[in-house]
Write a protein that binds this DNA or RNA. Sequence first.
DNA 1: CAGGAAGCAGAACGCTCGTTCTGCTTCGGG
DNA 2: CCCGAAGCAGAACGAGCGTTCTGCTTCCTG
Lengths: 194, 194
Amino acid sequence: MVRNREFDPQAALGQVVQLFTERGYRRTSMEDIVQATGVSRYGLYGTFGNKRELFAQALERYADDMGRQAFLRLLEPDAGLADIRRIFEERVLDACEGHGPRGCLLCQTAIEVAPHDDGLQEVLLRFLKRMAKTFAVGLENAQARGETRAGLDPKAGGDYLTGALFGLIMMQRAGFPRASLNAFVDGTMAAVAA
Amino acid sequence: MVRNREFDPQAALGQVVQLFTERGYRRTSMEDIVQATGVSRYGLYGTFGNKRELFAQALERYADDMGRQAFLRLLEPDAGLADIRRIFEERVLDACEGHGPRGCLLCQTAIEVAPHDDGLQEVLLRFLKRMAKTFAVGLENAQARGETRAGLDPKAGGDYLTGALFGLIMMQRAGFPRASLNAFVDGTMAAVAA
DNA sequence: CAGGAAGCAGAACGCTCGTTCTGCTTCGGG
DNA sequence: CCCGAAGCAGAACGAGCGTTCTGCTTCCTG
């Protein structure tokens, strides 16, 4: 060990996440990644392995960030439906304020990669199951305060909200106007609210 | 005009739809299409144009079939929530009975193609708007018979159901078990039912 | 029945991709 | 202070892609 690395792997991985999220797996070339991160091929292959492994690490990173930023508050006992709604609304705002729809790496993976890569399919499903469980905990908290509709099973509701979030993201990517996205969020909340 | 074509363009396009639906745009090569359809490159380029135009025609065909097969009955006056539910349930059965998840060309387009191709984005959005409108008509019919939840706006509900259908398909592609898919369908119907 | 326009199969072309290799630069340890 | 392990930039390679071209076959038309 003599010469030191000139780049920060975590920062580079963050930019890789963004690239894959916007363009998907096949449309993002290693050359694109070299350009965007400023890291040499040598550095990329030495630090992250090949393209597939790099994608896997980006996926892991994306899911971790998502869990930390958006979903953490659902685990607190005073969380409620408002916090669930906020996750959906932030997603809407995120795309409308920002420079066009930013996409979602989990969706990209589900559609483009997972059906052709059993390993990544397993990883993806693990993240989604965790997301569904977190939603379920949020619903339990909401239920304890009587916010949810009668007869709602929190576990089933967690699966439902997970799918609904992806439906929203899909509408975004397809180019639906903001009014339609808001209608979707309202409909989703109507499915679980009292 | 002397020598006759040896293939049926409509039959070939049907197989192309299947290929793009399963593998997506980038993962499907013209060589794959030649192999699957048995049509020569000459025939493909002469009849359909290049790959992008072929995809556009496959998308058109897919949306037409979808509209004809699943959505037509929603337009009849005696249609109701049961018919809407059946669209979702058929989608669930389709993937579970069949040979693995078949995917959805509209989802593939929304995720993989539309964000990078304004023309196809417009085509896609046109189909989805039509789908939302058809759902809305179905909801109006259901509303007239008092099946829908109080205060439901059929137009907003149509947008909601469109996004929900894509959420379901995404869950399918991600590998969610059938129980989760059923939970999603139940949740979706709970959002619109009385 | 013969000419030729149109369809066919497959070779070929130019390009881009993921990955590896090469020669140079850096800088801690003896 | 200099040796060499490790990082760097970019050339290079083999494979696969979308597309076009070539030589042959078919069969309607006059």
